[in-house]
């Protein structure tokens, strides 16, 4: 059965605290922390971008299990380093996959990574390829002073998807897709804009909960049948509330809820939470995973851990929570330098 053969994540080392951003913009940090349920976010180093994060995530996956027969690599992101010139080719070169491989970049709001997973699943199931790689990674942008600046973070996760030796089978996937324009960035603009509270009810919650319910209906499961659940994490509040609306308990979502400490890694968000769950999951554990992308929709996955997990070398790469804990804090000035927000002279 098609599923995850290996997985790996990468979260940049640097962090900035909500207090530090709030200090600069004269906001009440406590208000923001309790409002968003975010304490800090990850910041990419000046030498990191979606391509480097993707490669590091994938190397972590390969360190856990070296998979030889790879036929496709897809990188989903809304912050590809180039507007025109693919990221997935850089990844393929860095892994030594070239030239006999198919590749493409996906851009589909925050669910480009799961869109890539579905494509690879289809290719594997059709027999077109033996194994394929789906990556979701971002170095997302938030305008200075905007509410998004507290959450827009960097990180990514890579999945090697195949039919054989899976550590987690993907028993079902289901999607809803609509144009609900709650967040966008126009061509040539440095920062995105958003619809404020419009992003809640009609966008995030409607899509996430409807997909979660449909997956459970299709699988004949109830929330208590899942060991873990993980939802897209634009902030800590949304996935927590979605879980509650669906009848999941805090204990089911805690392991995958990483946003309070590293922020929203966009295309890497839900899948890095999923990666954190895989770090501890045992055979027969069930996971419900639902992504969300603004103006895109939601992809849901019913995942079951297989017996292969017992021999799988998870310890060959740093676990997600271990990476979260090894963060180092920087101040706002260094943050603006790292993110190249400072206007330089010629």
């Amino acid at each position: 059965m098609v599923g995850i053969v290996s997985y790996g994540s990468y979260i940049p080392r640097w962090r900035i605290k909500v207090e530090e951003i709030a200090r600069v913009w004269g906001e009440d940090a406590e208000d923001i922390k309790s409002g968003l349920f975010i304490y800090s976010k990850s910041v990419p180093g000046p030498d990191e971008d979606t391509a480097t994060i993707s490669v590091e995530a994938l190397r972590n996956a390969m360190n856990r299990k070296s998979v030889k027969d790879v036929g496709a690599v897809y990188v989903g992101s809304e912050s590809h380093p180039y507007a025109v010139k693919p990221t997935s080719t850089i990844v393929a070169e860095a892994m030594g996959f070239t030239p006999e491989i198919t590749a493409a970049d996906y851009e589909f709001a925050c669910k480009a990574g799961t869109a890539a997973m579905q494509s690879v699943m289809g290719m594997v199931e059709s027999g077109m390829i033996k194994n394929g790689i789906a990556i979701g990674a971002d170095t997302s942008q938030g305008a200075p002073g905007d509410a998004l600046e507290y959450s827009a973070a960097a990180g990514g996760t890579a999945f090697i998807i195949g039919n054989d030796n899976t550590i987690a089978d993907i028993k079902r996937t289901y999607s809803v897709t609509t144009d609900t324009p709650d967040f966008w960035r126009r061509e040539g603009q440095d920062y995105p804009r958003h619809g404020g509270r419009f992003t809640g009810e009609p966008a995030y919650f409607r899509h996430v909960t409807s997909v979660a319910k449909k997956i459970m209906e299709l699988m004949g499961t109830k929330p208590e049948d899942y060991t873990y659940a993980v939802f897209h994490q634009p902030n800590g509040k949304f996935p927590t509330r979605a879980a509650r609306m669906l009848g999941f308990k805090e204990s089911q979502i805690k392991q995958g809820l990483i946003v309070p400490y590293i922020g929203n890694t966009y295309s890497g968000s839900m899948i890095t939470g999923l990666s954190a769950i895989l770090d501890i999951a045992k055979p027969e554990d069930r996971i419900l995973a639902v992504s969300f992308g603004s103006g895109a929709g939601s992809d849901g996955f019913h995942i079951e851990i297989t017996k292969n997990m017992e021999d799988y070398r998870r310890e060959n790469a740093k676990a997600v929570w271990k990476q979260i804990e090894s963060g180092k804090y920087i101040d706002y000035a260094i943050y603006t330098k790292f993110k190249k927000k400072i206007k330089m002279g010629d």
């Binding site: 180093g45 990191e48 480097t52 860095a94």
Partner: peptide, 21 residues
């Protein structure tokens, strides 16, 4: 670690390579 090493300028090609971590 796989990192950006240099770039021609903001519009130019990005040169990747290795750094240590």
């Amino acid at each position: 670690s796989f990192r950006r090493i240099r770039e021609e300028d903001r519009a130019g090609i990005i040169e990747y390579g290795y750094k240590f971590i």
